[in-house]
Structure formats: structure tokens, C-alpha cells
Design a protein around this nucleic acid. Sequence first.
DNA 1: GTCTATAGCGAGATAGAC
DNA 2: GTCTATCTCGCTATAGAC
Lengths: 215, 215
Amino acid sequence: MPLLIPKDKMKKADKVPIDQSTEEKIKRAAEKVFLEKGYSASRTKDIAEEAGINLALLNYYFRSKENLYIIIMMEKLEVFFDVIIKTLTDNTIPFEQKLTVLVNKYTDLLIHEPNLPLFLLSETHKNPDFFASKLNIKARLREAINIQPFLDGKNQEEGLQLLLSFLGLTLFPFIVRQGFSGLFDLSEEQFERIIEKRREFVPKLMVELFDKMQK
Amino acid sequence: MPLLIPKDKMKKADKVPIDQSTEEKIKRAAEKVFLEKGYSASRTKDIAEEAGINLALLNYYFRSKENLYIIIMMEKLEVFFDVIIKTLTDNTIPFEQKLTVLVNKYTDLLIHEPNLPLFLLSETHKNPDFFASKLNIKARLREAINIQPFLDGKNQEEGLQLLLSFLGLTLFPFIVRQGFSGLFDLSEEQFERIIEKRREFVPKLMVELFDKMQK
DNA sequence: GTCTATAGCGAGATAGAC
DNA sequence: GTCTATCTCGCTATAGAC
């Protein structure tokens, strides 16, 4: 019977499985609750409910709220930083296109995970040593940046200046999405139309900035 | 005796008073703790300690943690949005200089209140109807933006696009300050040197963007 | 592995003396 | 107004039956 199922259909079923393991169900529920409310405001009861299981099971699988939280946090740090690290170190992408690729990848990611950047920012703010326990991210990111040709002839400060500008233009709209949409009564469609346009002009604007700094 | 004190010295003493009212001491302590940890992770005990008073006094003055929190939140929303609203509606500033004035004002503010933007973002995220209770901010901000001449001939979407870009370039560095400095081992001096340079080039870059959008 | 019941603790809030 | 002592409740975690 399983042999009759085409491979691509099976892949699809993998991503939205009817039957997840209990452990996975709890993790996905925890992800949802933690990313919405942060660690302190999250209730294990709510996570259990969201997962459709009993509260005791959560402790059976993960021992404690904190433990579960750390697992989710590490996953999410990985997801977020993988985008920039992988793109910058990918030799098959010509250097000039990397900004465009990055804008597109982050836009795709954050349209589906709108809470991700604000979650990472506010939670690592309250607990700065998450990065210490994720030392490889720090090292990998710095390495990825250092090998970029645009840094030739620039000091570190100029490189970071460009990075801050680029990430600000790319990520900021998602960070303020909720408040911004609320202040100007934007529908999801309106907001996403604004975002879509940025895929094109953010890299262009960065080129201007890059040229400015050359002088 | 007081008459011997020069007026400017008195003003200075006003800003860092030896003797604050108890109510004010609690508010300033609450401000510090809430902005660092957010509502849920803050402990009234810590606020009382920070203020140098007894826990019971906090409830005597403010009735509840939530009540105290709302007072601080409203104050901080006001502080933050006043900058942009006042600047945009100030007729004495020529339009071309408003971006420069805004970058400078926000930079000055956020150097001294580094936690402000991330606090407002993450806390209003968890409780979106803060803006509802601060309706005047919404109305005042929209009015302030609508009267700007640069919007002539532009649709709302283009105006918001520019606003998002400008605020991203201006505020994002402060929002990621802690994590960013940690990832690249930046000292406070290094970070602030980077920030200082942005006072000049952010408005310039915005002019490029503005021109691009004209076409 | 999954559940029900409950222990145990921490935090916010109040009573009441001074 | 300010303190000490205490109450109460909500939340995390565990014990123990199935």
C-alpha cells in the first residue's frame, strides 16, 4: 500500500503530518506559545492544551519548562542564523547577488514565521548568554562575514555599518509588523504588498550606500 | 540659604534629586526593572528593592503590579512617539531638515534609554490594545504624517515604505544593540562610534531613496 | 506512555501594628 | 506613610494508578 504513494506526496505528508510523535507535538506547541508570549508569560498548561496532551506528559518528555524552552530557542537561533551564514558562505552565488538572495530568503522565512525576530531579540536580551551556549553561531557568522570580498579595503567598522543598515532595511518591517499595521490600519494584504516591493529596492539601495562608502 | 544656589544648579538638582517622593522613587525603579525584563519576568519585590522601600508600600501607592506597569508603559509610549510627532508637526523646521533632526533626536534619546524600543515592541506585541487605550497617539501620529509635503503626489503605500526604511535605518541598531555587540565583541565605545556616523549618512541615504521613488 | 490528583513553592496582595 | 507578618492563588513539577 505505501508503495503506491508517489514520493513527492510522501514528502508533503512529512511536512504536515497527520500523526506526529507526541514529543514533536509538544515541541511545535511550545514553539507557538513561546514565540507569541516569551518564556515568562508562557504557561506550560497552555502548551499542553495546544498540543492536545496532558500537562504531566510535558514533564515526562522534557523534564521542565526551562528545558523545553532552551530546546526551542536553540532551534530558532539555528533557523534564523542559518539563512545568513549559509548564503554568505555559498560559493555558487555570485557576490553581487547575495544581498538579493538574503532579502528574499528572510522575507520568505518571516512571512511564515512573523514572530521569529522579535522573539529572538527580546528573549536573548533577557538572557544574553544564550549566544554563549550557541558558540558555534558566533564563530560561524563571523567567519562567513570575514570571507566576503566587499570587506577588502574596509575596516571592520564599515563592514558592520553596512550589515546594520542591510539588516535594518530587511528585518525591521517584520519586527514592527504588528504595531505598524495597527497604527495605520493595514490589512495583511497591504502589509505584504509593501514587503514584496522591498525585495527589489533594498538591494538597490544598499548598492548606493556601498558606493558612497567607497569614497 | 536656598537663595544662594544659582538657578542652573537648582535645575540640575531637579533632574537628579537627592530626595524624590516615594511615589516617584517607585516609578523610576519600576521603569528600570520593567524595561529590562518586561512585565511577566519582573518581580514587584525587585522593584521595591530597587526603590529602597518595602514591598507593601508599592501596593499602597499603586494598588497592583499591573496598574504600576500601565502607568510606566503610557509614559514610555508618550516619550517615544512625542519625538516623531513633535518633529513632524514643528513648522519652524524646514522640511528638508526633518530627517536629520529625527535621526539626531532618536539617537540622543536611545543612547540614554537603550532598552526603550525593544521594550515597547515586545510588550505591545504581547498586549496589542495598549495602542487602543492610547488612541491619541495613533491619531496624532497619522495627522503628523499626513501633513508632510513629501507625501504630495505619493500614495499612502509609498509614504509608509519610506517611513519603514527610515525608522529601520535609525532604530534597528538600537534594537539589536545587545546581541549585535555580543556577536562582534564590540565595546560600548565602538558601538557608539558606529551610531554617531549614522546621524549623517542615514538622512543622505534617505534622499537617494526618495529620489528613486520619484521616478 | 498517558492520565488524575496533589504536593510545593513563589509571587502578588492585604491586615494590622507603629 | 511605612513596616512585618501572613494569606491566597496560580503555576510547575511529581507521585502513582492504569
